[in-house]
Design a binder for these strands. Structure first.
Lengths: 266, 266
DNA sequence: CTACTCGTCACCCGATTACTCACAAAAGAA
DNA sequence: TTCTTTTGTGAGTAATCGGGTGACGAGTAG
């Protein structure tokens, strides 16, 4: 468990710059220059541990990206742009890249994402599973049934449900305590609540989803017996789709049976 | 001049994915899967030119990032998340990274960015120069004088001027034709216009900036004699700061002389 | 003139990664 | 069953890239 937030700013800055495609030397050089404001190759080399003779290459790289300016004197001096300008510049580049990616990918995406019939897909990790659930929420046309441990009902999921509700998708939500139910009612007005179908909170179960009666997902918490929802990797899920998919069939049966009973006896 | 926009979507998608840190194999595998929707290692290998035996590693990499799900059967099948979800995922990661970068860098940034006195800094490339100008606009406290070729007066620069104007910075803008002046007046109400100080449009001159009477920047277009503003790299600039900086001194003299004459004879 | 610094180059080496091949287990066909 | 093909794993090779070091001429200062 390395301390990431307490970590010194230099390390984090270097890490991000490298993730944005800078070489290690360039990243360290830039960070050094940022704290110096202005400096020569030797200054940079001393505070950044970059070999002096290589500072020049690093500067070239940075100059091409427009991150430093050079004062042509002897010794040469270097000047780094401000933190604000730097991050805005990368922000823009990345925005641009995500747009390019979105466009090119949707262009090649097959018109109809085939609905799988047989078999069950696996997904690991809380963040990933949530993404998957959100993806399914978006494709929902008729109804969503969602039952979850409270810790896993994050804001983005509520947003997803709310969006679906606005498209007149029927929302049925279970497993949440009374006080949280009130909050949900504000964000997702049309949502119908139902009591937990089983004793839920003590099991390692995580969530349980069904959309349009033909796509389902279930997850479990997997840190030994005591699933700890705060561990982002401690969740694993499976999902399946199609009217004849076995997972779908069995869950659909259970859900409709229980939910209709609830309807009869309110 | 490679055709980038006409380029096939596959290539652009792969390029972006690699920029986001995926290996070449992983990128090509994902793109292949995206267009297939679903497929086995062999399917992927055929459309992506990735050696079949390496598809598995690529899938591992993608699975860790939450970009594909795996159907555990024989042969194994792979499923790619939608274009929308993919780009949103990267968008989020990059947003996160830029924020980390912004925070860590501003933490190390020296309280006072020292005002250089001697010497002249050089900057190349239209985009970079614009960034630099914007950075100086933001630091402006009293007044901005800006004279520019019209082609270089992009929207972000007008925004920058507008922001400064709202901070009660005096804006003096020159070199733009009458019809563009009208448009500016809408966005930057307080701006004072002045006629081009010299015959401007026929020279390779690009722009000319002074903020707070102590920081100046001048640029020139450098594609042989006929500077073509549409070439993003065809501009080169120098800037200097400080009351005693020679570049500052001389430009300040010229500006105040000409602008005060304009004031006298409106 | 001497001592030192600065900037460029050439080179080495270690890590990463693309790429190939061998092979055993599994699935399918005869 | 037995034979053949396919599938997944793992080892091993080649090449590229980037970090690290040192040599050296030119420029600068005392």
């Amino acid at each position: 468990m390395s301390n990431d937030s307490i970590d010194d700013p230099r390390a984090t800055a270097v890490e991000q710059l490298e993730a944005f495609g800078l070489s290690a030397y360039a990243a360290r050089t830039f960070v050094a220059l940022s704290s110096l404001g202005t400096g020569t190759a030797r200054d940079v080399s001393q505070v950044s541990e970059v070999p002096r003779t290589r500072v020049y290459d690093a500067i070239d790289e940075l100059q091409d990206r427009g991150l430093v300016d050079v004062l042509e004197s002897s010794p040469r001096e270097f000047w780094a742009i401000s933190a604000e300008t730097t991050s805005r510049s990368f922000e823009q580049e990345m925005q641009n890249r995500t747009n390019l990616l979105r466009d090119s990918l949707s262009e090649l995406e097959p018109v109809e994402r085939t609905v799988e019939q047989r078999g069950v897909w696996t997904v690991d990790g809380q963040r990933t599973i949530t993404d998957r659930v959100l993806e399914f929420f978006e494709e929902a046309a008729e109804g969503i049934v969602y039952m979850t441990v409270e810790d896993l009902l994050t804001d983005d999921l509520i947003d997803g449900l709310s969006d679906a509700a606005e498209r007149d998708v029927r929302i049925q939500l279970g497993g949440v305590s009374a006080d949280v139910q009130d909050r949900i009612q504000d964000d997702v007005p049309g949502a119908e609540m139902f009591e937990s179908l089983w004793l839920w909170s003590d099991t390692p179960a995580g969530r349980l989803m069904m959309v349009d009666g033909q796509k389902v997902l279930v997850s479990a918490l997997v840190n030994g017996d005591d699933g700890d929802p705060s561990d982002p990797r401690g969740e694993t899920a499976i999902w399946g789709a199609g009217e004849t998919n076995s997972l779908v069939v069995v869950l659909k049966a259970i859900f409709t049976w229980r939910l209709e009973r609830d309807d009869e006896v309110p």
